[in-house]
């Protein structure tokens, strides 16, 4: 059975201060890239699930997982990328 691979990219919202991103931006100045104005550091999560079933239902389920568990809508935004779904 074909597997579906989903990647969830999560970043802190632009309205939320990201100390990790700011620390990386500072380091980039030492690296010689003073022109970088903003850095946001997030995470990427990969999920593999069997590809059987209704594609719309699978997509809805993955969106719920990304929105309600893997990210926190109060402070984060996410993008869901799905490979292998018809």
């Amino acid at each position: 059975m074909a597997m579906i691979r989903a990647r969830v990219s999560i970043l802190p919202k632009r309205t939320v201060f990201d100390p990790q991103g700011e620390t990386v931006r500072h380091a980039l100045v030492h690296f010689g890239l003073a022109a970088v104005e903003r850095v946001r550091v997030g995470k990427e999560i990969e999920l593999e699930i069997p590809g059987d079933g209704d594609p719309a239902a699978i997509r809805a389920r993955l969106e719920a997982i990304a929105r309600d568990f893997l990210s926190n809508p109060v402070v984060e935004e996410f993008e869901l990328h799905i490979e292998g779904l018809p």
Binding site: F17, P19, Q20, T23, V75
Partner: peptide, 10 residues
């Protein structure tokens, strides 16, 4: 309500 984030000074 709300969330708790990494301390501003890291």
């Amino acid at each position: 309500p709300g969330a708790l984030l990494t301390n501003a000074d890291g």
